[in-house]
């Protein structure tokens, strides 16, 4: 079970109404390397990985939901008072037709989220290497979002999220080192 704290992991400030930026940010909401995919991937894999790393996957998977919440807040703030006309100009006319200003789990191109974005192979090395790759891809996505955004307040939050990806990747690399050890096995051959 979880305990919810009604606050964001990092303050989300937005400089200006900018629905175009929201359209790009949604990549980290419902995209292949987004926070939802990350959270679901780790929280699902943890059952069948060695129990040494279960806690790590729980912690990181939980934090990904905190990141998801930050992205959602950014998208919401960027669009909440935009007129349908502005949304149309930002390329969100299709989104408005289906969802009004509601958030939805799709990527920047509008493709809906799918479970095929994630994998659970059951092999500890394979799964942890996928997790490392996912963190690096999410880090790269944040870099491209920072490059494309001219909102200094949003970029501040994105830089925080990018740094967290770097730390998560480090922890998964340490998890690989942990499971490479012989554990409680008898140490003679």
């Amino acid at each position: 079970m979880w305990v919810y704290e009604k606050k964001l992991q990092y303050p989300v400030r937005v400089s200006q109404c900018n629905p175009t930026l929201a359209k790009y940010l949604i990549e980290q909401y419902g995209g292949a390397d987004g926070e939802l995919a990350a959270a679901l991937r780790y929280l699902n894999q943890r059952y069948t990985l060695p129990d040494k790393v279960t806690g790590l996957l729980t912690d990181i998977g939980t934090e990904e939901f905190a990141h998801l919440e930050m992205i959602a807040t950014m998208v919401y703030k960027l669009t909440k008072d935009a007129t349908p006309e502005q949304l149309k100009e930002a390329g969100l006319g299709d989104h408005y037709a289906d969802h009004d200003r509601a958030l939805f789990y799709h990527n920047a191109a509008g493709n809906p989220f799918t479970a095929t974005y994630i994998q659970a192979k059951g092999d500890p090395i394979a799964d942890l290497y996928e997790d490392i790759a996912a963190e690096e891809k999410a880090r790269a996505t944040y870099q491209w979002l920072i490059d494309i955004s001219d909102d200094p307040d949003i970029n501040d939050g994105l830089k925080f999220l990018r740094e967290r990806e770097v730390v998560h990747s480090q922890r998964f690399r340490e998890a690989v080192e942990l499971i490479k050890e012989y554990n409680e096995q008898k140490n003679f051959f």
């Binding site: 944040y142 870099q143 920072i146 490059d147 970029n155 990018r162 740094e163 770097v166 480090q170």
Partner: peptide, 8 residues
């Protein structure tokens, strides 16, 4: 572990 990122 800190990785600063500057816009391209």
């Amino acid at each position: 572990l800190f990785s600063p990122y500057k816009k391209t």
